[in-house]
């Protein structure tokens, strides 16, 4: 057993030991051990050349990581949260995601951006949003969202093995999640969705921090005789569209659970994909459970109220059973 946090640390340690090109750069990743303590102990273990504290400039250290990747390294850039990654969005979009294209295929940018996402820790609007869809919108970028301890490890290794820039979105509430971890296993293919629970009546499609809610909802639905299938999307770009189609065509009903906002969000893309592939299989209007369209509130009860809840997922699923 290990925590989600330990699984990421384990993967980074393994990668740095096996490949001298890999290093970690970011705010407070060294002496402080990372804002979410993911890299705690790695500085002592691997030294300051591999674990590099950067000045407090997202654009600066992200650009440094991109430059190092162009120069042949395999950097892992930790951005404290996706909210601050917006300051580095110019680097990520205009350099990391586009250079392969603009150089006619000559310059690839094998950099990994790790960043925390999501709400639930009462750290208010500027630290709590789920902005994955901003990044999943960008061609040339790949986006992963681990939801299990094993995926937390496997996706770091899978992202490092990829020749393109990859963003990994780590939900803040998952760091203490405990689960089985096989540190010897060959990393699972990160680009395929995974069915976390089989069911025939409807599909709950989700990713990252909402997987646990969906599994809880599926358990509650099972008590009422409804068999929900829980599909963990894992990769947000590219989306595993065949997996979405296969599940929806089996269950004929789709509820997407996404902690992002509804308007223009990933849930819209997922549902559209299902409509495009499987319209005639559907026996219900696709539904989505998303975060309320407000900046995430600080107050605990308001924050809870704004986020997708198990009861809402159950209610949406039951609605879907009625067409």
């Amino acid at each position: 057993m290990a925590t989600f946090r330990e699984a990421i640390r384990s993967a980074m340690r393994q990668a740095m030991r096996e490949d001298p090109r890999v290093f970690l750069i970011g705010e407070d990743v060294g002496h402080y051990g990372g804002a979410f303590a993911v890299s705690r102990g790695l500085l002592e273990e691997l030294g300051p050349e591999r674990i590099r504290d950067a000045p407090l400039s997202e654009a600066g250290f992200t650009g440094a990581g991109i430059g190092a990747a162009i120069g042949g390294m395999r950097p892992i850039v930790e951005v404290m949260t996706v909210n601050f990654a917006l300051l580095a969005l110019d680097q990520i979009l205009n350099n990391a995601a586009t250079l392969l294209h603009m150089s006619g295929g000559q310059v690839s940018v094998p950099v990994v951006f790790r960043m925390t996402t999501g709400a639930g820790k009462q750290i208010a609007a500027q630290h709590s949003h789920s902005l994955e869809c901003y990044f999943a919108h960008i061609p040339g970028l790949k986006c992963l969202a681990p939801a299990t301890v094993q995926d937390a490890r496997d996706m770091v290794l899978g992202a490092l093995a990829d020749p393109d820039p990859v963003c990994i979105f780590e939900h803040a509430l998952l760091y203490n999640l405990e689960g089985a971890l096989d540190e010897e296993a060959a990393p699972a293919d990160p680009w395929r969705a995974a069915v976390r629970r089989e069911g025939r009546d409807l599909t709950l499609a989700t990713y990252g921090g909402s997987l646990g809610k969906c599994l809880d909802a599926a358990a509650a639905l099972a008590a009422d005789g409804v068999e929900a299938e829980v599909l963990d999307l894992r990769s947000l770009r590219p989306l595993d569209r065949p997996a979405i189609a296969a599940s929806v065509e089996k269950t004929r009903r789709l509820v997407v659970v996404d902690e992002g906002w509804r308007t223009g969000g990933l849930s819209a893309e997922i549902i559209t994909s299902a409509l495009e592939s499987s319209f005639y299989a559907l026996d219900a209007v696709p539904r989505r459970v998303c975060t309320a369209e407000v900046p995430i509130p600080y107050a605990k009860h308001m924050e809870e109220h704004a986020l997708p809840k198990v009861a809402e997922i159950v209610a949406a699923a039951k609605e879907a059973l009625r067409g």
Binding site: Y280, L282, D283, R322
Partner: peptide
């Protein structure tokens, strides 16, 4: 629903003759 329509087409069932049991008679 699309799935119901597809089945009705395949089986030659006239949808106007059916009573829907879904929300609002779907």
């Amino acid at each position: 629903t699309p799935a119901a329509r597809a089945l009705a087409d395949a089986r030659g069932v006239d949808l106007r003759g059916l009573v829907g049991t879904g929300r609002e008679g779907v």
